Simulated assay, not measured.
Amino acid sequence: MTSLAVEASKLVKRFEGQRAVDGIDLAVPEGAIYGVLGPNGAGKTTTLRTLLGIIEPDGGWRKVLGEDRPMRAAPRIGYLPEERGLYPSMQAKEAIAFLGALRGMTLADGRRRAGELLEEAGLGEAATKTIRQLSKGMAQTVQLLGTIVHRPKLLVLDEPFSGLDAINQQRLEGLIRAQVAEGSTVLFSTHVIAHAERLCERISVIAKGRVRFDGTVAEARGRLPSRVHLTTRAGDGPWRAALPADSIADGRNFDFALPEGGIEPVLEALIAGGAGIESLAIERPSLHDAFVDLVGEPVPQPEPGEVQP
């Protein structure tokens, strides 16, 4: 049985009588990249902060790295909050070392490790630059390096890709994968589904403080049938009776859910009826499609420059 890095049961947090977190269950396996997905205001940030012990729950329980009092595990955790914060006049290398010192490292060890991390991230030339001299993406990368400088066993990232261009986004994804390869567990929140589809093994979808889905990305996508996109040379004929009743027709183009019996019986009827198949494609549902089905509202569009899966 896989050990859990983070677990919670019936977690509740209220603000002014309203449940921001409403009975959430969560189980994050050790060594996984686990995504908490949801629209803005879904309760993702409050859930993460409650799990980490930054705020106390009003009900339920949670355990982090084996500790039922999460603050005891703090030295083994790296946390990147949604609100970024670095001292503008501090040099990048010093900022990383300072964040390491807050987790128990000596400044000497922190500076040595900071230099290594900056070189690995392709930012070696930025080591002596102040934070205010860096681009937004570079400063955000520096803060992430400060989050991992002490080699945490658990990395918790709240909307880590917010505002990053494609290059810095890919750099961040590489850093996340590298941490897992070294034995860390990653738990991150996002409202942009493409990130989770690229990175995550397991996800939870949260809406209005409740978990709507928990499982693998493949399981989420498997909730919906694949779609068939068909173009015929003939516009009409008896062969149309072979198409599912819910088919959407646009001239000679047809769109319908893949029948439970597969596409073969439909193909046989189309060929026998002389439909003339010009093109046929079967499209698996994306995580985006599954998210809309689960949450019942449109997914936020990716920010400019973001890479799509």
Rank of each mutant, 00 (worst) to 15 (best):
I131W: 10
S189F: 06
P265Q: 02
V64L: 00
I277C: 07
P238C: 12
L4H: 02
R72T: 09
D250C: 13
V12T: 01
P285S: 08
D22V: 01
H150W: 06
W61C: 00
E30D: 10
I167H: 15
E182V: 04
L26I: 01
L270E: 06
V142F: 07
G31K: 06
A249H: 14
G174C: 11
I24T: 02
V142G: 01
L270P: 07
T232I: 04
V180W: 09
V64M: 00
W239L: 10
A242I: 03
Q179I: 04
L175R: 11
W61I: 00
G251S: 10
L287K: 02
H229I: 15
L52Y: 07
D58V: 08
I248F: 10
G183I: 00
L65R: 04
D255W: 15
L155A: 15
A32P: 09
G23S: 01
E201D: 15
T2R: 14
Y87Q: 14
G31D: 03
S226V: 00
A114K: 12
E56C: 12
D289Y: 05
V205I: 15
E83Y: 13
G262T: 00
E264V: 02
K129R: 15
L80M: 12
A74M: 15
A196N: 03
G137T: 07
E268S: 13
P265D: 06
L123F: 11
E16N: 13
F291H: 03
E278W: 12
I176N: 09
L118M: 05
A241M: 13
A95S: 06
H195Y: 10
F254A: 05
